[in-house]
């Protein structure tokens, strides 16, 4: 894959490049990746797999710092405040929702995007005892009586899993603000509620629900992905109901604080690309059920922009205003 650079940005930063040092000299000491999530879990696991591949491919020493407090706010803040020398970068994931709940105000300009390496699609699931067998049936019922239904967001509401589903529902003509959205502390609390009959639906990633799906206790109605998800080929795509491909869920990328010099970003991008293309990375991600989604710096910047716009639209419809 060939990565084109953002030439305009490169030109503006060029005068400072001499002092910042050339990419060939980077890094001369161990680098740190901040993971704004606790040990264990998707963000931590995928980053560790990536870090190990970077160590193998590039010979760097990578140390990982877990800062999961405040739903990721603390980790992202340390990332934004880190010295922009490229020695401290972090895991970047959908961050725009924090603004609307008043927790923090991160914008694309606070980060230097490096590259995206993983993505998991959101899906809508229901319990096995639910009368709904298809996504269309469920959406029609919710459209008719939105206030009757309770949907669990997995994490806090207004974040990675529920925002894409709510966006899809808005396109379907559903008044999403009338639905009762139930926040939780991760997928497990939601699955627990779903299985015990506490909620009607849940927005969640398929790998996290796989145990209960294979137990026949949870039924996936549709996944927000343009193509079938490996390992879950039987789950219908949301696009079939909507009439156009639907893509929504989490993305995981590397990013630094704003102001990291361009050639250091390039060094990181190259390292990430080599790691992502390596067999060890691909195999590890496959066994662990994580999708590989490579995006170079430029595409990641575009993704971040559209993520901020989508979040703004959905959050306004859900009744959060800012």
């Amino acid at each position: 894959m060939i990565c084109s650079r953002n030439y305009l940005l490169a030109l503006t930063v060029a005068p400072f490049m001499v002092s910042a040092g050339w990419a060939a000299d980077f890094p001369t000491r161990p680098v740190t990746i901040i993971v704004p999530a606790a040990a264990g879990g998707g963000g931590d696991t995928t980053t560790r797999i990536l870090a190990r591949s970077i160590e193998q491919e590039m010979g760097w020493t990578v140390s990982i710092i877990n800062q999961g407090q405040g739903g990721g706010v603390v980790g992202l803040t340390s990332m934004v405040n880190a010295e922009p020398d490229g020695y401290t970068v972090g895991l970047l994931f959908p961050y725009a929702g924090y603004k609307y709940t008043g927790q923090a105000d991160f914008a694309g300009a606070d980060f230097s995007p490096i590259a995206n390496f993983n993505g998991d699609s959101s899906s809508l699931v229901t319990s096995a005892s639910s009368p709904f067998e298809t996504l269309a049936g469920a959406l029609d019922a919710i459209k008719a009586e939105p206030s009757k239904y309770k949907i669990h967001c997995s994490g806090g509401c207004g974040s990675v899993w529920d925002v894409p589903v709510a966006g899809m529902m808005m396109d379907y003509g559903i008044e999403v603000e009338k639905i009762t959205w139930i926040p939780g502390q991760g997928a497990a609390t939601g699955l627990q509620e779903l299985a015990s009959g506490g909620v009607d639906f849940q927005t969640v990633s398929l790998p996290e629900a796989s145990g209960l799906i294979s137990a026949g206790l949870v039924r996936p109605l549709g996944v927000l992905s343009p193509e079938p998800v490996p390992g879950f080929e039987d789950v219908p795509l949301a696009g079939e109901v909507m009439g156009h491909p639907v893509d929504g869920g989490t993305w995981r990328a590397l990013g630094g604080p704003a102001g990291v010099s361009d050639d250091i970003i390039k060094a990181w991008e190259d390292a990430a690309q080599k790691a992502v293309q390596s067999d060890s990375f691909k195999n590890a991600m496959k066994t662990a059920n994580f999708g590989v989604k490579w995006m170079p710096t430029e595409d990641l910047a575009v993704l971040m922009k559209s993520h901020e716009e989508d979040t703004a639209r959905v959050m306004a419809a859900l009744g959060y205003s800012k």
Partner: peptide, 14 residues
């Protein structure tokens, strides 16, 4: 691998 600060030793912490 606890990320303790290396302070003055940072340049050679590798």
């Amino acid at each position: 691998h606890v990320p303790l600060s290396w302070g003055v030793l940072t340049p050679i912490s590798g």
